[in-house]
Design a binder for these strands. Sequence first.
DNA 1: AAATATTTGTACGTATGTATA
DNA 2: TTATACATACGTACAAATATT
Lengths: 229, 229
Amino acid sequence: MKPPPLHDRIRRDVEARIMSGAWEAGRRLPTEQALMAEYACSRMTVNKALSALVGFGMIERRRRAGSFVAAPKIHRAVFDIPDIAAEIEAHGSHHGLDLIRHIEREADPDDRARLSIAAGPVLDLTCLHRADGRAFALERRLINLTLVPAARMVNFARESPGRWLMEHVPWSDAAHRISATAAGKDAMLLGVVPDAPCLSIERWTWRTRERITYVRQVYPDDHALASGV
Amino acid sequence: MKPPPLHDRIRRDVEARIMSGAWEAGRRLPTEQALMAEYACSRMTVNKALSALVGFGMIERRRRAGSFVAAPKIHRAVFDIPDIAAEIEAHGSHHGLDLIRHIEREADPDDRARLSIAAGPVLDLTCLHRADGRAFALERRLINLTLVPAARMVNFARESPGRWLMEHVPWSDAAHRISATAAGKDAMLLGVVPDAPCLSIERWTWRTRERITYVRQVYPDDHALASGV
DNA sequence: AAATATTTGTACGTATGTATA
DNA sequence: TTATACATACGTACAAATATT
């Protein structure tokens, strides 16, 4: 029905030729001038298409030298890591929350390392997320109360800490670490044997330079992170 | 020394105001006209800055309505998943490879499911990657020989399958799945107890519509995937 | 319900700067 | 040194979508 924008068509044409292997890594692309001629359009239009491909990491461009197909050296995967409450609800299940620990204290050495702070009050939470009553994930979280004093007033027995933070505290960047671990002493809470393999997701969240929160979530059973199709 | 491009400065100014929380989610941005005036530049320059932010998912734009700060709904993490040989070498260790199984056969039902094919020859490889002699990861891989007949000629006792494929077979897309698993019957090869928790990374790789290879890599010990800072 | 005004989307053409083969 | 090819930016125009009147 609607013809796609020209810059989109150019981008996808080039993309297709790279994907198919017709233009292999390192190969030089036609110049902007050549593509202008091929598509009978202006240079800005070609430039927009190729700039987008730079953004995707599919090509590299060097002045005077030209544009080149980038080497797809490494596999790169983008994983969406949703708030646990949202994840459970998206699955059509009922989200339950057991608040197991809720302590406010001055940061101890451990806290200071996790939040990269010299001192200050922190909130130390442990809670168990349930999906339709079944243990789904155990969450241990530290919140930097200097940056998020409002967290003192929240009833985390009713509101998921991750969700509350997501909705009330702007953040600029996050780092993640994914590993496998045995359930260990959390086995009882998670309803598995201590040797059961669990997926562990750790996350550090920043606002500009300062660390807002650290969280470690432990998933029993076959919980998996998936990306792509 | 070199002043940054104007569109870059505009983009980063807007970015900073969103990151800092000064402009919260849903807030309307100044119009392009307003930014033109603020920075005394043309609309194309402003447009380039804002278009980049759309690409990053930081703002949304609607004709007539304006530009809005996007809600940071979910955490999204980008993980680089390198070829194991490269990973080991990047760590300064020596990469060793034990080829444990190397079978060519007509696809059995299992193979057909994993590669989404109706029939055809496949190569079934199992190999153990070593870092300085120590077991690092166990890799089981299926290669679609219809698409990659050249794989028949490769000596995978010497060349890492992942590296060879990366360098010789163009691919367009990949899906990943990350989970935790017990070492189980691979424990002996990996040098751990059967109950040891391991990280499992599965990957399906396509060229356009057709599936080139499926691989499952099992990492013992504390191997982790990290993203961000 | 229809016309209007606003705002972004796309594309044109041009010009000058800059890195480099 | 010079020509090349990309980088940035200007100004203009019309199209498309959609709030507002």
